[in-house]
Amino acid sequence: METKVQGSNTFLQEICAIPGGEGIRLCIQCGTCSASCPNVNRMDYTPRQLFAMARAGMREEVLSSNSMWFCLSCYLCTVRCPRGIKVTDLMHALDCLAVQQRLSSGRTYTPTMYRSFSDFVYSIGSVPEMSFMIWFYLLTNPLRAMKMMPMALSLLKHGRLSARARRLKPEAERQFKAILDKAESLGGIR
């Protein structure tokens, strides 16, 4: 299905090259996704608007918006879309493009939170909750870490905050790293 000046709209082609992204061509602008989204009121543009803008080739406006970072991955839009578009996956595809092209919104901490999380996964293959939270607060707003102290203490008291990270056996960790390094050398999804 052709929707727009294909060939000149490289942004649309980039989106379509990501699994789940190609569905954007099928959008009929009915707005079911926007009406279903629990976080739509926080977004610069509703999902429906965002997809129309992307199809119009508005790369900067789309990728620097906060919209996809407010996606909760609850998949309500995905199960309701009458065109079978994987809307949640499409939002994640836009997240990734924003990260790659260094356009992610500075008006939400979510990109940094996601990055802190994936950095832990990449380095040790697991996410130690306490270290991840501390790292995230240091990167964003160390003062907020202070406000979280009562909660952290209560978690400690209930034995729910462990400083010890789960580690893979050394050979498994090497295997994991080798796979991810290879993935990186393959240059992303396209």
Binding site: M68, S73, C96, V121, L180, E184, I189
Partner: peptide, 19 residues
């Protein structure tokens, strides 16, 4: 290893599938 969860899928698609 960690499944990668939503955060990884929103940062690096290929790596997230590999994880």
């Amino acid at each position: 290893n960690c499944c990668g969860s939503t955060p990884y899928t929103s940062v690096d698609e290929l790596a997230s599938y590999c994880v």
